[in-house]
Design a binder for these strands. Structure first.
Lengths: 223, 223
DNA sequence: CGAATCCTTGAGTTCCCTCAAGAGAAGTGG
DNA sequence: CCACTTCTCTTGAGGGAACTCAAGGATTCG
């Protein structure tokens, strides 16, 4: 992929949108284009943090492995979003593992280049701080979530958030397995929770398409 | 408290240690000294993020309230550590609540001043990024932790981390209630877990002083 | 010393996990 | 188009870990 096209990708990434075209051009020259097949590992837990990624196409799952060998999904990264910035700033190792869930194309930005860019561009620093702060809030939300209510309550809350609290369709962009991990449940418990919501007439399902029939009813369950 | 003394506090806070004395002096002039009684609220969930805090003395608990009214502890902040930086960078509202657990003295730095300082000091930006990244890793660790193993396993792991994986004493700087929340458990379950570790001869307890008698034995439980 | 808070222990129950089997899609290759 | 494998999802049965409710000790503080 040409430097030109990589620069264009950066221009559409919120984090780098505030840079001048020249600055983006400079970053793009140091960036590389990487493709990953479905199931391929982007980086492993404990590897030195060589740089950060921007997802151009596809989907990447970031997760930790518990001592028991169970996967705990931290984040599902979609096109336009970034990956592993935090590891770069800690200048240590990646604290989690990342795997492509679909055929994916990522832009890779070496750590040195990113750090340089931030030193020279205070506005980028602020954007990056805001980005990390947002993720921190997300994690805080997840921590709160996972200690609250029953499986059905957590699923209801998640569905409402996905749909913007209104009636409408939610398309699952992930397997049940992944969603279960995000909610701190097992596959089976998630399946049963879906069934119960369906039996109560609150949702309708067809494969990975979910229709919220009664947002109020769902909200009543989130307590 | 004098500007002089506040500047001295900043000099001993890792985040601001890299500034020149002049820069610290400037920040200190805008900073204020705030005292909180035990149990007093530092800021509430949803309040506009007016600025960040540095804990000088005491201890502050940061937590979220679940829909069910249950407290989920996110962080226990000790002297030298900072509070609510992330909220400032998001330029929104505090996403959690903070309460002084002991009589506490905090340095308050208004959002505007902090943002200015970062724009003018790239090194401070990098330190702040590293600090947020560390907290992000902590949260990720907590998320993993709370989905792994039994109550006894989680407690064992926590004790080992506190003691640096070696034999020795761990002093609980918090109530059982707070520790329970950090581990994603209830008071009662935590109490029973302590009892079981004691019954197994792995630890000895006296009030909030805990002696690890058999780190190997504890490690064996963490799986 | 009394009041309030914190901690421990017990009994009963519920929710979720584990183990297990099978149904349903999707991709492969003949 | 159909057998084949593979992956994903659903459902059942059973058991166990942790939660809730409840009461009584222990500690701290005024």
């Amino acid at each position: 992929m040409s430097t030109q096209m990589l620069a264009a990708v950066l221009a559409h990434t919120p984090l780098f949108a505030g840079l001048t075209p020249d600055e983006r051009q400079q970053l793009a020259r140091a960036a590389t284009d990487r493709r990953f097949a479905r199931g391929e590992t982007v980086f492993g837990q404990g590897e030195p943090a060589a740089g950060m990624f921007v997802v151009m196409h596809g989907q990447v799952k970031v997760f930790q492995l518990t001592p028991g060998g169970h996967e705990v999904v931290l984040h599902l990264v979609r096109p336009g979003e970034t990956l592993a910035e935090a590891a770069v700033f800690r200048r240590g190792a990646y604290p989690a593992q990342a795997r492509a869930m679909k055929p994916s194309r990522l832009l890779f930005l070496p750590a040195q280049v990113l750090l340089q860019a931030i030193l020279q561009n205070p506005d980028l620093a602020l954007r990056m701080l805001a980005s990390l702060s947002n993720r921190l809030r997300e994690f805080a939300g997840m921590l709160g979530e996972q200690q609250s209510g029953t499986a059905v309550a957590r699923l209801s809350g998640w569905l409402l958030r996905q749909s913007g609290d209104a009636e409408g369709n939610v398309r699952l962009e992930m397997s049940r397995e992944t969603l279960a991990s995000l909610l701190g449940l097992t596959r089976e418990t998630l399946s049963r929770s879906f069934s119960r919501l369906r039996a109560m007439g609150l949702i309708a399902m067809n494969r990975r398409e979910i229709r919220l029939l009664d947002p109020e009813g769902l909200r009543a369950l989130t307590v």
